[in-house]
């Protein structure tokens, strides 16, 4: 698979994940965000921030749960990618 195809897949997954935050149940949006995050790690954080911008209100929830979850998922994905790449290089 050439770089252009990979880039297109990353772009499509990223856009799907962001649209899913608005259009799909949040459970499905979370799964899509994690799936896209395997190729584009910042996507879970971006989806979490978008969900908070759309749905969070201080009198509904004291803590922006989805932004925090996205940040944790993105950090985890970066760590896993780093380990995988390090093992490949070694």
């Amino acid at each position: 698979m050439c770089d252009d195809d990979t880039a297109m897949i990353r772009g499509v997954l990223t856009i799907f994940a962001l649209v899913a935050v608005i259009a799909l149940p949040w459970q499905l949006a979370a799964v899509l965000a994690l799936l896209a995050g395997t190729l584009v790690p910042p996507v879970p954080l971006a989806c979490g921030l978008l969900a908070e911008a759309l749905y969070w209100a201080p009198n509904i929830s004291a803590v922006p749960v989805f932004a925090l979850s996205g940040a944790i998922a993105t950090s985890g994905l970066y760590i896993v990618r780093g380990r995988i790449k390090a093992s490949i290089i070694e």
Partner: peptide, 12 residues
């Protein structure tokens, strides 16, 4: 792509 998604979310 990652930076674009993050920038979009931060803008929102």
């Amino acid at each position: 792509w990652g930076a674009s998604a993050l920038l979009f979310a931060l803008f929102a």
